[in-house]
Computed example of a mutant assay.
Amino acid sequence: MIAVLMGGNSAERDVSLNSGASIYKSLKNQNIDCFKFDWLGDNLNQLWAQNFDKAFIALHGRGGEDGTIQRQLEKRNIAYTGSNANASKQCMDKAKTKDIWKQHNLALSPWIVANIGQAIPEIDFPLPWAVKPILEGSSVGISKVEDMSQLKPALKLAFKYDDTVLIEKWIEGSEYTVSILNGKPLPVIQIKVDQGFYDYQSKYISDATQYLCPCGLSNADEKHLQEIALQAFNVMGAKTWGRVDFILDKNNTPYLLEINTVPGMTSHSLVPMAAKASGLSFDELVLAIVNG
């Protein structure tokens, strides 16, 4: 019996409910015993009262992607999909992720970390900057700062979600994403946004956002991106499945952005799209994650 864990109380609750519903439907299609569980943050006792062998974690963001639910399952020796508690916690923290990637000489844009109520450290890289909370996903709370007058409102927005914020050099370029499934990178997807950048609106609401697969890169460049993505995934201790996001600047130099250990599984989501391009149906993808 598989428990599909969904919902949560993060800023990504709605997306998680959609992902969970798609996964549940797929498991049912394959005659796999399963049930949906909407985690509200304080009702885990209701989950433990159920009889199940494995959890499919479809919880995005805080609580579901940061090691919290993983740790609770580990305590009870219950198997679950995806990365373990420690890796999940590291991957969710954008600053920690950058620190680890830097140790492995992976290409990153320069950054600093700012804490609420403290003076901002000196920023020694030029505008524009991206300002983002370190523990949110789905581009929640991100701003582009093009002149100093925009920094204060950008920090105010980011601090609404987190006490710690990342300020990094904004790389102008094209966005690409590489999904990883059971030790192998899937075909690269290029993300083309109608306007602005790939924010929450572009990800989940807009129908103008384009996803190109084939991604338009040469075979050599695509292979290079896949190799970096796999290394970035592995050095974080991530397991089974996930997604690594990049920006390629005008010289086609790749810069790592972030890693997702519980990516979306909705109709707009990128892992199912990449899996389809590699010949896997949605049902086959779900089964591969369950068995991973």
Score class of each variant (00 low, 15 high):
3 A>P: 11
6 M>I: 12
9 N>T: 15
18 N>D: 13
19 S>C: 04
30 Q>F: 03
30 Q>K: 13
31 N>Q: 14
34 C>W: 04
36 K>S: 11
38 D>H: 02
39 W>L: 01
40 L>M: 13
47 L>I: 05
49 A>F: 07
55 A>Y: 08
55 A>L: 02
57 I>L: 07
58 A>Y: 08
63 G>L: 12
71 R>N: 12
75 K>I: 14
75 K>S: 13
76 R>S: 05
81 T>W: 00
81 T>D: 02
83 S>W: 00
84 N>V: 05
86 N>C: 09
90 Q>K: 14
91 C>N: 05
100 I>C: 00
110 P>R: 01
113 V>D: 04
117 G>R: 13
117 G>L: 09
117 G>P: 10
128 P>S: 12
136 E>W: 02
136 E>T: 10
137 G>D: 01
149 S>K: 12
151 L>Q: 07
155 L>S: 15
157 L>I: 06
157 L>V: 05
157 L>P: 08
158 A>C: 06
177 T>P: 03
177 T>S: 02
179 S>Y: 01
183 G>F: 02
183 G>Y: 06
190 Q>L: 00
192 K>C: 11
194 D>G: 10
195 Q>C: 15
202 S>T: 15
208 A>T: 15
209 T>N: 02
211 Y>D: 08
213 C>N: 12
225 L>D: 02
226 Q>D: 07
231 Q>I: 13
231 Q>C: 10
234 N>V: 11
235 V>T: 15
251 N>C: 13
253 T>G: 04
257 L>F: 01
258 E>N: 09
262 V>Y: 10
268 H>L: 08
268 H>E: 14
269 S>F: 00
272 P>K: 03
273 M>Y: 10
277 A>Y: 11
283 D>S: 12
